[in-house]
């Protein structure tokens, strides 16, 4: 079986995988980072979104071996100790989650948007979320959360 090496949440990791092993399986089953979820088998729902080299990616649609040498960030890598990331705070403050299953993917996807656009409009947020499905919130509070989170991130960088 091939060995894969990558950097996950700032730590060098390696593991033996089958060539068919998906990145999400490597994260969940080998590394036991179970915050990244699987909600479908057709790359539609976005519950599995992580960052690969700083850009959001659906970890159900990448092979683990494709990430050789890559920097991978998962939901577990966002908070700095007890200090939550501003986007995490924004989801809590704006009730941007209910069951929590889509939430890690939503937050990781939102971060990528905020990195590209520090003040997205409501329509820009809604368009960006095309690849993330939530069944609980009706998106109303997710959209609010992401707009607030992006603002907080921008303010943090400015200060």
């Amino acid at each position: 079986m091939p060995t894969v090496n990558m950097n996950v949440n700032g730590e060098a990791v390696s593991g033996e995988v089958e060539s068919r092993t998906l990145l999400v399986q490597f994260l969940r089953e080998t590394l036991r980072l179970t915050g990244t979820h699987v909600g479908c088998d057709t790359s539609q729902c976005g519950a599995c979104v992580v960052h690969v080299n700083g850009v959001s990616a659906k970890s159900c649609t990448m092979l683990a071996v494709q990430c050789e040498g890559a920097d991978v960030t998962t939901i577990e890598g966002l908070a700095d100790g007890d200090a939550l990331h501003p986007m995490q705070e924004a989801f809590r403050d704006n009730h941007g989650l209910q069951c929590g299953f889509c939430t890690p993917g939503m937050i990781m996807s939102a971060l990528d948007l905020a990195n590209r656009n520090s003040a997205p409009s409501e329509q820009e947020v809604r368009d960006w979320l095309e690849g993330n499905i939530c069944r609980c919130t009706g998106y109303h509070n997710i959209v609010k959360s992401i707009m607030a989170g992006a603002r907080a991130m921008a303010a943090g960088q400015g200060g």
Partner: peptide, 18 residues
């Protein structure tokens, strides 16, 4: 604000498949 949110926004929810 919800007490349960911390574990969900930090990826520490414990669902059955976890």
């Amino acid at each position: 604000k919800r007490k349960e949110d911390y574990r969900f926004i930090t990826g520490q929810g414990a669902y059955t498949d976890d």
